[in-house]
Design a protein around this nucleic acid. Structure first.
Length: 225
DNA sequence: GGGAGTTAGTACATTACCTCA
DNA sequence: CATGAGGTAATGTACTAACTC
């Protein structure tokens, strides 16, 4: 029904390699050129028969035949041409969604069905979102690692202050008012109250510790608690 | 005005196809 | 040559907003 010529494939690199294959090989087969869909079992054979196609011809045929796949046949996979791919990418940079008019115009321009343009934009949005999620994930991972390190450092510092307090208790006592102020501070995120027992003795330290704690909350929310 | 049904568009999950190592 | 992995077009489903009756 649909002779298989085109090496249908998704990525631009894959597409380019397919184009290269056609450029390198020299024969031609008009019948083979008549399809953009193929079964995997026949792709290579058909490709061999259709080696003399010019790229633009390949692209043109690819698009045309994709429109013919409307007769209930098992689903076949369109291979977007380089030209189609770049135009679509261009439009996607302008706006990630299309209104019906734009969709229709683009479909016409690319010789695709509007539905195919619509699907491409859907999948493209999904890919963008996935990539962004990966980036966010990586960022959160780095934040987590930095916070872990910071936490370790602070714990160590705390231990040092505690041991310092044990060795010089009389000089490190807080004035009553300052101590009270320090102990009443509540973290807005985890609602933990820093009590006197946990606090190191100096107000300066208490302030620094809270500042660091809150800074952690405000810059990297969940990881700090 | 507001509820029910319809339509169109989108996100999301999944499937199916294709290429390549 | 067979096969599994990866990329992506296509499909199915759920949700939402706009519209009509």
């Amino acid at each position: 029904m649909f002779p298989s010529l085109l090496s249908l494939g998704p990525s631009h690199d894959t597409y380019q390699s397919a184009i290269d294959v056609h450029k390198q090989q020299g024969a031609s087969s008009p019948s083979a050129a008549a399809s953009s869909f193929s079964n995997s079992s026949t792709v290579k054979k058909e490709t061999d028969l259709a080696v003399d196609q010019e790229v633009e011809e390949l692209e043109r045929v690819s698009s045309r035949v994709s429109e013919e796949d409307e007769d209930g046949c098992p689903r076949k996979k369109l291979r977007l041409t380089k030209h189609q791919y770049f135009i679509l990418e261009d439009k996607f940079k302008e706006h990630t969604t299309l209104n019906p008019k734009q969709k229709q115009a683009l479909a016409q321009q690319l010789n695709l069905r509007p539905r195919q343009v619509e699907v491409w934009f859907q999948n493209r949005r999904a890919r963008t979102k996935l990539k962004q999620t990966e980036v966010d994930c990586e960022l959160l991972k780095k934040c987590y690692e930095a916070l872990t390190e910071e936490n370790k450092r602070l714990q160590k510092e705390l231990q040092e202050f505690k041991s310092l307090k044990l060795t010089a208790p009389y000089y490190m006592q807080l004035p009553a008012a300052a101590a009270a102020t320090a102990t009443l501070t509540v973290c807005p995120c985890c609602e933990r109250v820093a009590n006197a027992g946990e606090n190191p003795s100096t107000p300066a330290f208490a302030l620094e510790q809270k500042k660091s704690h809150f800074f952690g909350h405000f810059t990297r929310p969940s990881a700090a608690c």
